[in-house]
Design a protein around this nucleic acid. Structure first.
Length: 317
DNA sequence: TAGGCCATCTGGTCCT
DNA sequence: AGGACCAGATGGCCTA
């Protein structure tokens, strides 16, 4: 009965390997089944329950044989063999349901991953990063609706990256075909962080007040602020959770340089936002909506600004 | 090797 | 009673 239950685990997955979850599931189930079959090496609590159960049966037998009730004070209710089996079976079924439930949750997260602006089949966002990015994305879009202004591309990216880890931010940059190029900081040279959330936690008056060589200069380059500045003037969604502030990764410090990414480490075809720019770059303005055309223009502007220092940097060598 | 991420198991709680 | 949901514990895998 238990064996049968184990074999009908509701998975529609490839054959189990040692590293697959199905393998682990089957293994865990078989372990449990084995423990039910009172194999040696079973968990202590299992054997304890078996002992309780034996004791219970013996006591019941004694009572039946005596033909009278013996009052021995309060004692815990012993489970019959059949009931014990039922409890264990229910536990196995509950485990299967729980697995299904979590699979459903993961499927929903996968769906979410596909609609946030950074989707890569090869480098999946973690659950927490997916949720954070989705929150930022919703917030950014709602700000666009609220202000009715077109976003500055770089600021939009910064907004999306609020509170995200550095690897995720880098992935975002890759998805947007923007590569974070870190150059040697020069004294007095302005740099900015991809983490505007950080500035919120310190208040606007502190923005830009830190020295560049501290690696924490927070003010974005003014030329990139543009119409999307309204986003900075609004409360950050990240302010709601103190935990977010605590767990916020250190801001990336670079000199405000983005450059086109040439390596193909990310599946751009499946990249939601990147695809937009890929397709935009191959279209004429007439084929684009006003918003797409605007974004494309901004993208080119950022590209130009980004490549300038890069070219001068590499050209100087 | 430590830390992050993940899947799974498990017991508790709440609801039907 | 049983299912859904939740959070803690645990162990495996992967990467820096």
């Amino acid at each position: 009965m238990l064996q049968e239950n184990m074999l009908t685990l509701p998975f529609d997955k490839p054959p189990p390997t040692r590293s697959s979850s199905l393998f682990r599931t089957s293994w865990a189930s078989s372990q449990l089944v084995q423990s039910v079959k009172t194999e040696p090496g079973r968990a202590p609590e299992e054997s304890e329950r078996e002992d309780d159960e034996r004791d219970g049966e013996e006591e019941e037998d004694e009572e039946e044989q005596a033909g009278s009730l013996k009052i021995r004070g309060p004692h815990k209710k012993k489970l019959s063999q059949a009931r014990l089996e039922r409890v264990r079976l229910r536990r196995i079924e509950a485990n299967a349901r729980e697995r299904n439930r979590m699979h459903g949750l993961n499927n929903a997260l996968d769906s979410l991953r596909k609609v946030v602006p950074c989707y890569s089949k090869t480098q999946k966002l973690s659950k927490i990063e997916t949720l954070r990015l989705a929150k930022n994305y919703i917030w950014a879009l709602s700000e666009i609706l609220r202000t009715g202004k077109r976003p500055d591309l770089l600021t939009f990216v910064q907004t999306l990256c609020k509170g995200l880890s550095q690897p995720t931010t880098n992935l975002m940059a890759s998805c947007l075909q923007l590569n974070v190029c870190s150059f040697m900081s020069e004294p007095g040279e302005e740099s900015f962080s991809l983490y505007p959330a950080y500035q919120y936690h310190h208040g606007p008056e502190e923005v830009g007040s830190r020295s560049a060589d501290s690696g924490r200069l927070l003010r974005p380059s003014g030329s990139f602020c543009g119409p999307y500045k309204a986003l900075y003037d609004s409360p950050s969604p990240d302010c709601s959770s103190p935990l977010d502030a605590v767990t916020l990764s250190p801001p990336i410090n670079f000199n405000g340089i983005f450059a086109l990414k040439h390596e193909d480490s990310v599946d751009y075809r499946s990249c939601h936002y990147g695809l937009r720019y890929c397709s935009i770059s191959q279209s004429s303005s007439a084929e684009l909506g006003p918003y797409d055309a605007h974004l494309r223009d901004q993208f080119y502007q950022v590209q130009e600004k980004s490549n300038k220092p890069f070219q001068s940097h590499t050209g100087g060598d």
